[in-house]
Design a protein around this nucleic acid. Structure first.
Lengths: 211, 211
DNA sequence: ACTAACTCGTACACCGCTGTTCGAGTTATG
DNA sequence: CATAACTCGAACAGCGGTGTACGAGTTAGT
């Protein structure tokens, strides 16, 4: 059920009355959303207290803007998704060889995708898989379309399910970002290494047979 | 404390006195350990109550054998690790071409690795990364040795950090198991697909350059 | 058959998190 | 500058989890 009862609410969906908000309120909402994102970068289940403190705001104020944890979760997810989509839209995915397009996509999005990791887990837990699927369906579709194009052109493996290749893509993205975070993989070589591995994984088997 | 007066020192470390345990107690401990493993397969943070109920045992009994959540966690981790190692030792990893050896390893362990997923997360959270590293160091070393051998032989990519290749290995294993669990990837073709993708990812670049 | 080991339910104290209320202080905005 | 909007701390109730204590019932081992 996508029946998000939000009426006129622009962008995110705070809880105050639909009337105009004061400037500092707007600023605090921003701060809260940023803080939540920051907290999610370090742990999968930040408490409201933690988020409020990080935002430099009283817990009560937080509840003033977001009536429940779920509401906040939804808002922050939507916000992140929006930014991510904006960033990804700047990449031309539909022209040139599929593998080169993929390399471009990786370079500009492997950091962004990592941002989603914990948020996604939390959202799946508290919002249900359905609503989550809906919201980042287009981001997923973009990658899927690209890979499908590569398959059709024979650049990517054809005897492997498309869905699995998409999963491989996201999974290795996350892994690379995580390793970079932990210092196991230097951020400078990370994109190159990731691209290398990913293209190998997706590519139509040149040297090796399935068995 | 390894001060288990018992000569046999049977794996896990329950909390009762070092003296002999009665048969049904032993049986319950087994049930609890199994239940914990089962619970971890469905969620990353099962409660003691949940585990006890799954084991068909009173919560008090659980605390009788494992004095704290942490103790239980450690015991169940060790147990799973032991079984996993036993299973993996039956695979000959050091003979034949590295890629074929890898294929063998995948076939017999991709399900097992999945079992670790949530346990590992929980252990990292509550036991600290150090103790965890120690415990499954040898399982990790086995894969690392194999991949290094493949690199030396030129079968696997040499211009990519070894650590990253190991990460890739485990990551894709998890992903495949998870997809299979969710019905997105049929269990019959999963090993083949996984092997295909993994060999492509690790293989020395046949057609593509890092950029 | 007798005893020690084991199990179980209930109940308790403690903790952290969520969401709400209240009253008073502060600040933007007209 | 006056008012409405906003913020804040403190305090409360509710919930679920952990770990402990008690007492009575059941079961294995000798």
């Amino acid at each position: 059920m996508p029946s998000t009862g939000r009426g006129a609410a622009p962008g995110a969906a705070p809880a105050r009355s639909a009337g105009r908000r004061r400037a500092d309120a707007e600023r605090n909402i921003e701060a809260i959303l940023d803080a939540a994102r920051a907290c999610f970068r370090r742990g999968p289940a930040p408490s409201m207290t933690e988020i409020a403190r990080t935002a430099g705001v009283g817990r009560v104020t937080l509840y003033g803007h977001f009536p429940s944890r779920e509401a906040l979760l939804e808002a922050v997810l939507e916000r992140t998704l929006q930014q991510a989509n904006a960033a990804l839209e700047s990449v031309d995915v539909d022209s040139g060889p599929a593998d080169e397009a993929l390399a471009r996509l990786i370079g500009s999005s492997w950091r962004i995708v990592d941002e989603h990791r914990n948020q996604l887990a939390a959202a799946l837990e508290h919002l249900g898989p359905d609503r989550v699927r809906d919201r980042h369906a287009d981001a997923l579709a973009r990658v899927e379309r690209l890979i499908a194009r590569g398959q059709a052109a024979g650049v990517f493996a054809q005897d492997v399910p498309l869905g699995w290749l998409v999963t491989t893509f996201y999974t290795l993205m996350h892994a690379a970002a995580q390793e970079a975070d932990q210092g196991n993989l230097s951020p400078e070589i990370a994109p190159g290494v990731l691209t290398r591995t990913l293209l190998g994984a997706l590519s139509a088997g040149p040297g090796h047979r399935p068995t």
